[in-house]
Design a protein around this nucleic acid. Structure first.
Lengths: 206, 206
DNA sequence: AAGTGTGAACCCCTTCACAGCA
DNA sequence: TGCTGTGAAGGGGTTCACACTT
C-alpha cells in the first residue's frame, strides 16, 4: 500500500503527464516533472519506484508509459462512479466540476431533499430524493460518496450510506463523522484550509 | 512556528469547542476532544502544549479558555478578509458558504469576467470586473485570495495578485502556480482527493 | 483513580548521495 | 556527462510511558 502523500502526488503527476502528452512531449526527466509538480527530483524518482515503474538515464520517463503505470495503480473501474449527497452550492459546484471536465470520474446521481431539484438534471446528472439512496447505490454498485449536506443530518445519512455499501467518502461537512471500520473518509475542510493559509502567510512575512 | 498538521487540528478543535460551548459544556478532557476530532488524547495534549496552553488533571481543559488560546494563535484581524477570484460554480459555492455561516472570515469582494455577474451581489458579496483587482486589494489591504478560475488564466491572475500584495492563496485550480517567495499557496484538489479516497477505500477492503 | 505535561522512542516520509548506466 | 535507481541518513510529526497533580 502506497503512502498517502505518494498517492496524492501520483494523481498530480498524471494530470501533468496528460498535458505533456497533449503538447507532444514524449518523455520527461524527473527534475522536469518535479518542477511542474512543485516537488523535487528525488521525490519523483522515489514515487515512480514505489509503483514499480522505471525510466532511463537517456530519456527519463516515457510520458505514455508512466501515465499507464500510474493508472494501473490508481484506477479501479469499480470505484470510478460516485453519488453526490446534497445539491447546495457546494454539491452543485462538485457536480458542475466533474460534469464539465469529462474525467475518469463519473457522478451517477445526486440526492437532495428539495422537491424543486428532484427529478431534474444538473450538468447531466439526475437528481433523486433521499429515499432512493439505498436503491440506487446498490443497483449501480456505487462505492464512493461525496457528502455536501448540512451538519445536522450528516451523521444519519452517513449511517445509511455505509449500510448501503459505500466504502469511501469525500466529506465537505465540517463535522467528525462516525463510520464503521473499512470505510475511508477524507475531510475537505475549506475553513481549516483558510486558517492554515492565513497562519502560514503571516509567518512567512517574518 | 507550528507544524502544519497542528494548525489544521487546532482549527478543528476550535470548531468543536464552539459546539461544546453552545451545548453548555464548560470543560473537556483530552480524550473527549480527541474522539470528537478523530485524533487521540496524546496528540491533543501535544497540540495544546505547543500553543502554550494547559489544563488540569481534574477538569481537563476549560472550553472557553482553550478557544481563546487557539484564537490567539490562529487569528489575525489583518488576515480575516479575502477576495474570491472567479464566480463559477466553485467560486459561488465558496461565497455562499462563507456568506451563510457568518464566520470569522469575510469575503470582501468577488471578481469575474462575466458582465452579467459584475455589479451584482452574491450572498452580500459585491462582484467586480477583473480590472478592479489591484485597486480593491490595496484599498482594503487584502492579503488572502481564493482562486477559482479556469486554468489558462490562472498564472496571469496569480502574478497580479502577488504584485498587488496578496500573501496567501487558497488554490482550487488544478495547476502548479508559480509564486514569489513569501507567498503561501494551499492547493485544494478535489480530483486528487477523490482518487485518494478511491485508492484507500479499495485497499481497506483487503 | 484518572488525567495532564512532556522527554524520549518510534515511525514514516523525504532527501542525500552515489553506484550504475546510456 | 547527466540521469536513473536506491540504500542509507535525516527530519519531523506521532505515540509511548510515566512522573506529577488533584
Amino acid at each position: 500500500m502506497l503512502p498517502e502523500p505518494t498517492v496524492e502526488r501520483l494523481s498530480r503527476y498524471r494530470r501533468i503527464l496528460r498535458d505533456l502528452h497533449g503538447s507532444g512531449k514524449t518523455s520527461v526527466f524527473s527534475h522536469e516533472l518535479a518542477e511542474m509538480a512543485h516537488s523535487n527530483a528525488a521525490q519523483v524518482r522515489r514515487d515512480v519506484m514505489l509503483i514499480g515503474h522505471s525510466g532511463s538515464p537517456a530519456k527519463g520517463y516515457e510520458v505514455t508509459a508512466l501515465r499507464t503505470a500510474i493508472g494501473d495503480v490508481l484506477d479501479d473501474p469499480a470505484l470510478s462512479r460516485s453519488v453526490v449527497i446534497g445539491l447546495g452550492n457546494l454539491g452543485q459546484a462538485v457536480v458542475g466540476y466533474f460534469g464539465d471536465h469529462h474525467s475518469r470520474f463519473t457522478i451517477s446521481a445526486a440526492f437532495d431533499v428539495d422537491p424543486l431539484k428532484i427529478g431534474r438534471e444538473n450538468f447531466g446528472v439526475p437528481t433523486f430524493g433521499m429515499e432512493k439512496l439505498e436503491e440506487l447505490i446498490s443497483a449501480q454498485n456505487i462505492r464512493i460518496a461525496i457528502l455536501a449536506i448540512p451538519k445536522p443530518v450528516a451523521q444519519e445519512i452517513v449511517n445509511r450510506l455505509c449500510a448501503a455499501g459505500i466504502t469511501g467518502i469525500v466529506n465537505f461537512v465540517q463535522i467528525p463523522l462516525r463510520v464503521p471500520p473499512g470505510v475511508f473518509v477524507e475531510l475537505v475542510d475549506i475553513a481549516a484550509t483558510w486558517e492554515k493559509v492565513a497562519y502560514f502567510s503571516r509567518r512567512r512575512q517574518g
